[in-house]
Write a protein that binds this DNA or RNA. Structure first.
Length: 391
RNA sequence: GGGUAGUUAGCGAAGUGGCCAAACGCAUCUGACUGUAAAUCAGACGACUCCGUCUUCGGGGGUUCGAAUCCCUCACUGCCCA
């Protein structure tokens, strides 16, 4: 569904700088050129990234000139935003492989037929010594060092490398090279994006707008982060995705509704208040439908109800055919089904009462279980199932 | 170039000769409770042939009955001086 200009500039948007009205006016007069920059660092894309991508796609759907900028030039530095340590440098081969992987994940959200792909290495690599001096003359070291993460690192005694403070300038130069009207990014990118605005004015006497998208929290309400394990990956399997959204903190729901759905926010708010569970199911179905399909969403929902609401055994699970009549439970968990990483772990889970076979709790780690032609169900923890069948 | 401090398990961070497989926090896992909510509570969290054994504390070498802890050396990093 295509949204109106006003909706695109308002819904799920943290801020438009210098102001929304002038940008809306421009968009009504002509096609604008805008871009979103990405670092091909091999990141696993999450719903957090999808906030940006979705917004970008909305502009593409309105028919504007949308550019996806691959930061193969800036990646040499690595955006230090929000980072408490320097990033490792990448080779060209890594960058290429990373982008292919990125594209695969992002294809669920982006329609690459409507989006131009551009590489900033094309102009950044061509910058001469004189160009660099001119570029650097636009800012003071104080301005560059003002940023939180640098101040934090200074306090913590962590290294700040010389090339890192140049990042905003190089990102800003992208705006000059492409002569864009608008840049998209997360609110954490505001500093970098405004640098582009400053430089574009200096170099080309041209106005540029900046649209900052909110940074969403993870499912547990904390900042979305790999180390918290609270993110939803875009290429996650439907069932996992559904489950993760269902385990999300209630407080985060409305934001997700605003960003990832077109539902009326007042109604959603009421629904969340009256029946948080139903609201979450609606949200989970919506997101799984978006990133997979409506049939996937429906079956994920059924699976969820079976496993966690009714505590029944699901219909579908991985099957393992064995050519023996009986097998020890621990090797079955580690070697056959991979439901435990090591024998120690398998033993631990068994001792903690987390394993059942054919509905019966296993208490002895050295138990030998039967393998029958009709198949029996191994359950490890509350969500790992496997069907064991005599071949 | 000189001085000095540091490099510990997935991450952060204690530990400065035996009581260290290494405190604590986060992440993770299991169980209870539940809307698989969240929160909370209980427990686990190197591996294995599991009441014992084996491999870990930046790399390498050494001292010692015994080292994450002492010494030498290499690598990387912070801070100070130049």
């Amino acid at each position: 569904m295509t949204l109106t200009v006003d909706q695109v500039l308002t819904r799920g948007v943290a801020e438009v700088l210098p102001q929304k009205e002038t940008l809306a006016k421009l968009m009504s007069e002509r096609k604008i050129r805008l871009y979103l920059g990405i670092d091909p660092t091999g990141a696993h894309l999450t719903l957090g990234h999808a906030v940006q991508l979705r917004k970008l796609q909305q502009f593409a759907d309105l028919g504007h000139d949308v550019i996806l900028l691959i930061g193969n030039g800036t990646v040499r530095i690595g955006d230090p935003t929000g980072k408490d340590s320097t990033r490792p440098m990448l080779t060209d081969e890594e960058i290429k492989a990373n982008f292919e992987d990125w594209k695969r994940q992002a294809s669920k959200v982006l329609d690459f037929d409507k989006i131009r792909i551009v590489y900033n290495g094309d102009w950044l690599d061509a910058l001469t010594y004189a160009d660099m001096v001119k570029l650097l003359a636009n800012v003071t070291v104080q301005q560059l060092m003002e940023r939180d993460m640098f101040q934090d690192r200074l306090k913590a005694g962590k290294p700040i490398h010389g090339h890192e403070i140049m990042y905003p300038l190089l990102q800003g130069y992208d705006s000059v090279a492409m002569e864009v009207d608008l840049e998209l990014g997360g609110t954490d990118q505001t500093f970098n994006m405004l640098m582009g605005r400053t430089l574009l004015r200096q170099y080309k006497q041209k106005e540029k707008w900046v649209l900052a998208n909110p940074i969403i929290n993870g499912t547990d309400g904390r900042k979305m982060s790999k180390s918290y394990g609270n993110y939803v990956a875009l290429d996650e399997a439907p069932n996992e995705m559904f489950g993760k959204i269902m385990s999300m903190k209630d407080e985060e729901m409305l934001t997700y509704f605003e960003i990832f759905t077109e539902e009326d926010l007042k109604e959603s708010e009421t629904l969340i208040k009256n029946s948080p569970r139903d609201a979450k199911v609606k949200l989970a179905k919506h997101i799984v439908t978006w990133l997979h399909s409506d049939t996937d969403a429906e079956s994920a929902y059924q699976d969820f109800v079976t496993k966690f609401v009714k505590h029944e055994v699901p219909d579908e699970m991985p099957e393992f055919k064995l050519d023996v009549d009986g097998i020890e439970i621990m090797p079955l968990m580690t070697d056959v089904t991979g439901s435990a990483a090591s024998k120690s772990e398998a033993k631990r889970i068994i001792e903690q009462g987390g394993v059942t076979y054919n509905g019966e709790k296993i208490t002895d780690p050295f138990d030998v279980v039967n393998v029958w032609p009709e198949g029996q169900v191994l359950k490890v923890g509350k969500r790992k199932f496997a069907r064991i069948i005599r071949a």
